[in-house]
Amino acid sequence: MKALLVGEYREGKLLESTYELVGFAKKIGCEFDLFLVGSADQLPQVDAKLYLADVAAAQEYNPSQHKQLILDAAQKSGAETIVFLHSSYGWDLAPRVALALNAAQASEVVEATAEGYLLPACNAKLRRMVKAATDKTVITLQGGAFMAAEPGGSPQVEALAISADGNSEFVGYEQAEAGEVDLGKAEIIVSAGRGVGKPENVAMIQALAKALGGEYGASRPVVDAGWAPHDRQVGTTGQVVSPKLYVACGISGAIQHLAGMKKSEFILAINTDKDAPIGEVADVLVVADIKQFAPALTAKLEG
């Protein structure tokens, strides 16, 4: 099998996650070429063929053009498998490429075996093994599922010319607003998830955080609902933290949340659901109602 790895480039920089694609190809031991819309002075350090389109002409986000460029590269390279990251760039482009190539698509691959690809299902509670019934396959890799390869080497570059028009307009980026806390520096974080039930109960989590001498954090639904500000959000679209103690209160453990906290030294989870995926990373899972457990623990710590 030969793979075409679709690297990522943003705000003038090659993204480190590109090396996860290389790590994947090396792990399964397949031949591979790279594709990148980027620039000649930010090349991935890999000994491989690189199909390169100039970002100055193609822009960092222009799906119709990038799709056509990937199709051109796929044809030149003869790859049967096109590999993206399951990221805002990858999940946007992958189905466009799959449709055009008459290929099957497997999204958010966590493991590749001789049998097929393993994907999460039902909020990561289950795993689904799938196999393509087509000659070509498009896959997106779950972030962090494959270890990044060490950068090293230099690619043989073949430049690609732009041949398609875009059907949308990329206006520009907006940075996240700076918040008041930097959770990345906190040694203890107690986070509220949707399991806390209602906005008033976030105070319970704040109180526990205070009793432990730490900061409070939150999962995304709690932030989306306006129960906590965005600078408290832990996860891929929030902050990545690695405190000495992380307490997950009523948080199911979706991959996007785990990506933000799984490197914590000690993880305590409180959840009514014994099977909640947070159990995969937690050191201790307390099966209890957070509305009873949090105040009881706070009282004992303060007492």
Partner: peptide, 10 residues
């Protein structure tokens, strides 16, 4: 996008 970054698209 990742890490709190947004892209404006029309």
């Amino acid at each position: 996008l990742e890490g709190g970054l947004k892209a404006v698209v029309k």
